[in-house]
Design a binder for these strands. Structure first.
Lengths: 175, 175
DNA sequence: GCAACTCGGACAAACTATGTCTGAGTTGGG
DNA sequence: CCCAACTCAGACATAGTTTGTCCGAGTTGC
């Protein structure tokens, strides 16, 4: 059971977006997080399809959250990237082999599938009650109140300086 | 997030093994569950390495549970097949990029990693309290008390008839 | 009207999971 | 005591998914 790597980037991106009231281009998010730009863009597209972020095209475009961060759960973000399909899916072993049960007696899921589904429900519930705003607040608390202001000010500076230095140039300087 | 397909086979195999006090060959388990024999064998090897089942070689050999089914949790079986690594693993994004935090301030896990770990703990706890014996009892209850006796009698018959018909022959008859 | 920037989906490469095969070891009977 | 059959165990191909990259369509601001 392995969770896609992009889930981490998507969660961090949502936290970052919660600190900016203006659209943020995917290239800035990639630069800030140190991730492959094009691959992050693909995951942001998934978030857009799920209705979590809204994309604006053009020169002053980028991504922004569609709702207040307090109304976006971590579960939504994970589901948007990883897909809503359950990790364990029953292949109906009981209907195969020499002792196969008739389909009429298999209306309810197998007991094993029920147990696995209950575990996944517990996992989902734990993430349902954590919002992006909660995550941002906790990260800020861990950094003693400096992280989120640093992010928002860096975003503002990067957005302002987009006329002075090209994207390529700034990336080179920072890398 | 996708769980390996062999987890289902392993859980069913453990339930089946709980119904036999004699060793059961992997070929019989594969035939009973309708799975590729060699691939199931590979997963049974993983269960053996984890100390959940014990293998005996030779003519009357096979697999058997090392403990009473009531002392084997579903979590153990899942971990044996899927590996104990967490689904979400933090790549320390906060230590990369222009706003990278120094390693000295990153002793505790990231808040996002903490939230994901808490969810996985909830998932694990749900499976920790379900034993193989519980699963067998529930499957039996679903079938109105006929499934487990059918399994144990089929195993006994198949084991007895191993001298009369070859493995190949019996498979052909039942398929 | 132009130029630059943006997103969006189509196109390869790498890795893991899946499935198969042959070999080593052990048991039971002759 | 030897042989034959059956067992498990690990090494070997294959398929699917994830990861990563690229270029084109559309939009905005000047």
């Amino acid at each position: 059971m392995k969770l896609s790597n992009g889930v981490e980037w998507a969660l961090h991106s949502c936290v970052t977006l919660s600190q900016s009231r203006e659209p943020v281009p995917a290239s800035l998010l990639a630069e800030l997080h140190g991730t492959p730009p094009s691959y992050l863009a693909k995951h942001l597209q998934a978030l857009s399809r799920a209705g979590i972020v809204h994309s604006t095209a053009g020169q002053a475009g980028g991504y922004e959250l569609t709702r207040p961060a307090a109304q976006i759960s971590a579960l939504e973000v994970v589901r948007a990237i990883d897909g809503g399909e359950p990790a364990y899916r029953c292949t109906e072993i009981r209907q195969r082999g020499p002792l196969a049960l008739p389909a009429a007696r298999c209306e309810r899921p197998c007991a094993i599938a029920r147990a696995m589904a209950a575990a996944e429900d517990a996992w989902a519930d734990a993430l349902r009650h954590v919002t992006v705003a909660d995550l941002a607040a906790r990260i800020d608390a861990d950094s003693e109140g400096t992280a989120m202001t640093a992010v928002s000010s860096w975003l503002a500076a990067a957005r302002q300086g987009s006329g002075h230095a090209t994207r390529q140039g700034r990336t080179h300087v920072l890398g």
